[in-house]
Design a protein around this nucleic acid. Structure first.
Ligand SMILES: [Mn+2]
Ligand SMILES: [Mn+2]
Ligand SMILES: [Zn+2]
Ligand SMILES: [Zn+2]
Lengths: 140, 140
DNA sequence: AATAATACGCAACTCAATTGCGTTTGTCAA
DNA sequence: TTGACAAACGCAATTGAGTTGCGTATTATT
């Protein structure tokens, strides 16, 4: 269920603790529903008057990733970003000017494309990454 | 023109020197026509009995990138790869097992998709990154 | 309150990539 | 052929994202 308390409870049932860091990070990722990097999340915690060490942020992200609560997204700038899991499969429009991120759903098209490629190339596609770069409506 | 001597001559005309490192790197990227990282290229030079400092490799890659002779490719593993520029626009099938790379051409499909998205989202798409991950025919 | 596992802070470390700076080399022209 | 100068190079130090070891603190359970 896409709700902070439900996720916290599920983790608690598995023997993991309900911590303020965990609660705030999940809450923020659920709310913004867009990819955020470790630095942005640490800054967010700081704004919430919960200054924590970067190691704690990285470990928590690793923890949430391993349990499928978040997914890793790469914009190709050698910096890992994380998004809440469970959203409908989608991709991103990334503005080169304001760094804004918009979601875009192209699932149907991609599924067909993947099948075609898999058949032609005899390659079992497990996943793909597709991101678009350019200028958003505001920056045009 | 996709030929080492031609590229070297063009650079020379712009006041840059013809060096052994430059010649070998361009030659290798032209020959393999696939994305290679800095380490792989340094190892290649070493094999050719031309051991150079990694700084030289990074600087040369930066140099070739800025002049549009190579392009940067990202597989999402936080490691930059470079491919010779001027190849027909294409994407990659990356094997999660043997790390092999195959080219795949999906241009027509993507052009249509881009136009549709640009219109719907009012977003000017300048570029995109699309890579497929899975298992190649040998690793299946 | 005692216990044990989870979570955390801190310092050191890894790995890719970059920078400063002094030295070498390629090129061109005297 | 030789100077001169910019381009190229080596080396050490540095950056920046991310990780690891280890000792301490916190949470949950009894
Ligand atoms: Mn998204
Ligand atoms: Mn390619
Ligand atoms: Zn914008
Ligand atoms: Zn393979």
């Amino acid at each position: 269920m896409l709700n902070t308390q439900t996720i916290l409870q599920q983790l608690s049932d598995q023997g993991f603790k309900k911590t303020k860091v965990r609660e705030l990070l999940i809450g923020e990722l659920l709310k913004l529903k867009k990819p955020l990097d470790a630095q942005a999340l640490q800054d967010f915690l700081s704004d919430q008057k919960l200054a924590v060490n970067k190691t704690t942020v990285y470990r928590e992200l690793q923890f949430l990733l391993e349990r499928g609560i978040i997914v890793e997204i790469n914009f190709g700038d050698n910096k890992r970003r994380y998004e809440i899991a469970g959203l409908a499969h989608h991709h991103h429009l990334i503005c080169n000017n304001c760094q804004g991120v918009e979601d875009v759903f192209v699932d149907q098209d991609l599924v067909k494309l993947e099948k075609k490629i898999a058949k032609e190339k005899n390659f079992a596609i497990h996943s793909h990454s597709l991101e678009f770069f350019g200028l958003c409506r505001h920056c045009l």
